[in-house]
């Protein structure tokens, strides 16, 4: 939905690195004065949607050569945590939280942690210059990468959820909700990851922030909330992944309250829009110094 808006906007506005008035568009009058005469025609600008698809496709192809970190590590970690927690929780509501938390943890690991590291390193090594010297809308670069990282989480999240359901004897009936949880939690967490990676002044700091974000998702998402002190529960409410966890956990019941599920998912979506917008702003800031 958001992408559609951007697509339309790029036709009318200047979505590039800095703000330029519409009078520089080809075919329109150039500003009066020094540049009015003799200025060469500019090459075409890459449009929002095709460049987003191109970036997404290129990022997705990276999984071929970095399969283990991008696809497997997070899954093994989450499955391991569920096996550990099996001795601690006694079924029922707590088991639902553990399975939901471990599933969303896969999203947090890849979309938040790994994407923060990726952008942190890209920025530090000068890799952003490549994109900054192409006429591509900043949002296409950020959304393409964020979308690809969210996609990397799909197999791991599904495997974790199914394994968890079997392990704790939970119903598989409503797991289709993952089709909404993964993209929305993915948007929120990858936006956060991209923003952290692009804003961190040093790559080690980006890595550290990504790790901390993931650790928070692990501790606050997987451990049952009822046993936490008030302050920690408040922190839990601030973490966007929590709403993905809650939405998924609620669907394990016999009669899920779909309105609350929808509310949780809406929070994820809203955080996603805001964090991706912040990440796009951070990209512009990082691209031209």
């Amino acid at each position: 939905m958001r992408m559609g808006q951007d697509d339309c906007r790029s036709e009318k506005e200047q979505p590039d690195v800095s703000v330029v008035s519409a009078d520089v568009l080809p075919g329109s009058a150039l500003p009066a004065g020094e540049e009015a005469a003799g200025a060469a025609e500019l090459g075409p600008r890459a449009r929002m949607w095709p460049s987003l698809v191109a970036v997404y496709r290129a990022q997705l192809s990276r999984a071929r050569f970095a399969r283990i970190p991008l696809l497997f590590v997070a899954t093994f970690q989450s499955i391991g945590i569920m096996i550990l927690m099996r001795g601690v929780v006694d079924g029922g509501g707590e088991a639902e939280s553990v399975v939901a938390g471990a599933s969303v943890l896969v999203v947090a690991f890849v979309a938040l942690n790994l994407l923060a590291q990726y952008f942190g390193q890209l920025r530090a090594s000068g890799g952003l210059d490549h994109y900054a010297t192409l006429p591509v809308p900043p949002a296409a670069v950020v959304l393409g990468a964020a979308g690809a990282y969210a996609s990397f989480t799909v197999p791991g999240t599904v495997v974790t959820a199914v394994f968890g359901c079997v392990l704790f004897g939970l119903p598989l009936a409503h797991l289709w909700i993952l089709a909404a949880v993964i993209p929305l939690a993915g948007a929120a967490l990858s936006g956060l990851g991209a923003a952290l990676g692009l804003l961190a002044p040093r790559p080690e700091l980006a890595t550290l922030l990504g790790q901390l974000g993931m650790s928070a998702a692990l501790l606050l998402g997987v451990l049952p909330a009822d046993r936490m002190p008030e302050a920690v529960r408040f922190a839990r409410d601030l973490l966007p992944s929590t709403y993905g966890v809650e939405a998924l956990a609620r669907t394990f019941g016999d009669h899920p309250d779909w309105a609350i599920v929808l509310g949780d998912l809406a929070v994820c979506g809203a955080v996603g829009v805001v964090s991706l917008a912040v990440a796009t702003w951070a990209y512009r800031r990082a691209a031209v110094r």
């Binding site: 590039d16 690195v17 800095s18 330029v20 520089v24 060469a40 500019l42 090459g43 010297t133 591509v136």
Partner: peptide, 8 residues
């Protein structure tokens, strides 16, 4: 207009 460089 630094963003024009990418189109030239």
């Amino acid at each position: 207009h630094p963003e024009r460089a990418a189109r030239i």
